[in-house]
Computed example of a mutant assay.
Amino acid sequence: MSTDADQQSTKGAYVTGGQGFERDTAYIETRITTDGADGYPVEPGRYRLVAARACPWAHRSIIVRRLLGLEGVISQGITGPTHDRRSWTFDLDPGGVDPVLGYERLQQAYLARFPDYPKGITVPALVEVSSGQVVTNDFPQMTLDLSTQWREHHRAGAPDLWPEALREEMEPVMRRIYTEVNNGVYRCGFAGSQEAYEAAYDRLFTALDWLEERLADRRFLMGDAITEADVRLYTTLVRFDAVYHGHFKCNRTKLTEMPVLWAYARDLFQTPGFGDTTDFAHIKAHYYVVHEDINPTGIVPKGPDLSGWLTPHGREALGGSPFGDGTPPGPVAAGEEVDPAHTPLG
């Protein structure tokens, strides 16, 4: 029987005695800001983003970093898609060691700052290169800070993903997406009773129906251009048929059977920064191998067929443009490409 610490390491959350899923959201809240109020000022080259392509929460930070053109300012380390109860590991790198931090495990960065760190080791994490210490793993705040605190270093034509004029409307939209969709699929997958599962299932599909309606007459969640809200929804949608529909029993309908959301997801997938950061092989390996309690055989399914992600979506008819008055990012930085065998874009 696994301990609470084991539950955190493998799921980033607890399953409570009530048999419902509760995510542990007590993150390291240190921020990297322009004024350096927390002791970590914005400074090119000072920090390394450690992320996993498999993880939806980390995928957000990979997308936002690319959309904003911060590749030359914040370096990126990618862990393997699976991990043990201790930590995510750098098994994709030569010798299994991150070439910048010199670490085999992300856990080493956490312990460098907090020698008795008691919680699960999560991605994404921003690590100070010189000290090798984790700065923050607060993923919701992390991407907002990339948009606001690092603005001086954004590429020309970068989108405004957190526009001030829309924040009041965006906040409840993003809150509902997080509680009902991003986290909702996990409530289904890790439910400890039939009652908890069915309640989670109903909440999830109520929210997906709401999104079908919201996106029927607008190209993106907040209107004519992408924002942080779209990034947050995309990372769940792109994993839906590959993982959540079967593995997490979110099986009322597949994404491909929800016409508006399927077209919307393809629109984003075909936008630079989204599909070219999506690694389906990593996604499937993570969920089906790491979650031994749900999939004890460790068998990773061959499907689904990914070719549909490249089919026309027709969303241009709604007007707007992904980058508004800006421009798309250029080619993926050398060495950061997704393996062509892991994506239909290859």
Rank of each mutant, 00 (worst) to 15 (best):
Q7M: 15
P56A: 11
G298W: 12
A281I: 13
V238H: 02
T311K: 07
F139H: 14
T34I: 08
H313L: 00
I32N: 00
L306K: 05
F280V: 09
A263I: 01
E316Q: 14
R252L: 15
N251T: 01
E164S: 15
P118C: 09
E29N: 10
T148M: 10
F240I: 07
G303P: 06
V134Y: 03
A317D: 07
I121D: 04
E337C: 05
A196P: 05
R151F: 02
L126F: 03
Y178D: 15
V260N: 09
K11H: 13
G189Q: 05
K284L: 09
R187L: 12
T148G: 03
R46P: 05
Y234P: 09
G157S: 06
V42K: 06
N295L: 01
D202W: 04
G45D: 10
T16Y: 13
W210R: 12
T79P: 08
A112W: 00
Y264D: 12
A225D: 04
T179Q: 06
P159I: 01
P329M: 08
T179G: 08
I299E: 14
S61I: 03
F21E: 06
D224V: 05
L255N: 10
R232I: 03
I78K: 04
D293M: 10
A225H: 06
Q7R: 13
L233I: 12
W210G: 09
H59A: 10
P81L: 10
A216H: 10
P99W: 02
K249V: 02
L106D: 09
Q76M: 15
T256L: 10
R232T: 02
S193M: 03
A112C: 00
I28Y: 09
G330F: 01
P272E: 11
I28K: 12
E164T: 15
I121R: 07
I62T: 08
G223I: 00
H342N: 15
Y201I: 01
I74Q: 10
T206E: 14
A26D: 14
Y197K: 02
F240Q: 14
G326N: 01
A333E: 13
A229C: 14
C250S: 12
H313T: 00
R167F: 10
S131C: 11
D267H: 06
D24R: 14
T148W: 08
V181C: 08
E169Q: 15
Q194N: 11
A26W: 15
H83E: 09
V100G: 05
P124Q: 08
W150G: 00
T278I: 00
D6N: 11
M1R: 12
L306V: 02
M222R: 00
L161H: 04
R219E: 05
R203Y: 01
D325S: 13
T236I: 04
E169G: 13
M258A: 13
G298Y: 14
T253L: 14
H342I: 05
I177C: 11
I294E: 08
R65N: 07
R66G: 01
R252H: 11
F220M: 00
R252G: 12
P56Q: 07
D276V: 06
E152Y: 03
P322E: 05
Q8G: 09
A165I: 12
L268F: 10
V332M: 06
N182L: 06
E171S: 02
S193D: 01
T148K: 11
E212V: 12
